[in-house]
Design a protein around this nucleic acid. Structure first.
Lengths: 142, 142
DNA sequence: AATTTAATTGAAAAATATTTTCATTTAGGA
DNA sequence: TCCTAAATGAAAATATTTTTCAATTAAATT
């Protein structure tokens, strides 16, 4: 089994959640590809591994994974119904518009910008949210 | 009538859309407050001005306004079902978590960051979204 | 290995959000 | 005023998400 699935399972377990066949199937699907997934897509794909899986459980599992910070909601141009795996805590996504691949990127130091905006507007800024869209190396070749 | 409503109307007209009572009512509501609006909220409020208005028309009007770049979808923590007025073309929003006020901010020069991310990932970056959340000056006083 | 129990489950129903369809109405040019 | 394509609302359809509840099950305990 993928290392990431084992790591996620361990996180679930230590947060007091049981490792069920259904949850494992969901985790395995998410680990398949570093991309954004809609609940229905996860459901359809995970049912190949665990035919008894229900859509409700997919929603519930994604909720838990979000709460633990293992996946994050991704807001696409078409809507905000997708989720993507996250490796560290607070994370920003770079999304390929063609294949849907999701990459996290480092070095998001927005402090100077936030500082400037805060000064000019008088807002106290508590949270920021940045997403980039483009074309990944593989899709550029086509 | 608010200047902004007239400006929006002119934009609609010159894009070939008719100025109907319904559309005017929607525009007037959006001009009331620089905040984020959900379609249902717009509907309820605009019906006070135009009781014949249907929810379908609100959705359709918001679509058109988006297409013309006069409003923009706002992605909140709770979901992406809200819209906010936009003054210039590409715009970023600063959103008050308490009162919902939406402010556009200037000076979003992300070029160095985008350049850096592009180099380290190999992605061609075509679009970026940045949203800030915090507390506006008025809400800080409470 | 068997027992126990609280967590987890799926199905169905409900709630919520959005889009489509279509007959009727209407804005605005002729 | 007349005309016509655009726009409309109501209702139905579709899509998404949550709630409810009786049955099942993971995993701790014996």
């Amino acid at each position: 089994m993928e290392a990431i699935v084992m790591a996620w399972s361990e996180q679930l377990r230590s947060a007091g959640y049981k490792i069920t066949r259904q949850r494992r199937a969901v985790l395995q699907v998410l680990a398949e590809r570093n991309a954004h997934w809609r609940p229905l897509e996860v459901y359809q794909r995970a049912r190949q591994r665990c035919p008894a899986l229900g859509l409700t459980t997919v929603y519930r599992t994604l909720d838990i994974l979000c709460e633990l910070g293992l996946v994050q909601r991704v807001h696409l141009e078409q809507g905000c119904h997708s989720f993507a795996p996250v490796s560290q805590g607070h994370s920003h996504h770079l999304i390929c518009r063609k294949c849907g691949e999701v990459t996290e990127f480092e070095g998001c130091d927005l402090s100077p910008l936030l500082e400037r905006v805060s000064r000019s507007t008088g807002f106290v800024i508590e949270e920021h949210w940045l997403e980039l869209f483009g074309t990944c190396p593989a899709c550029q070749e086509e």
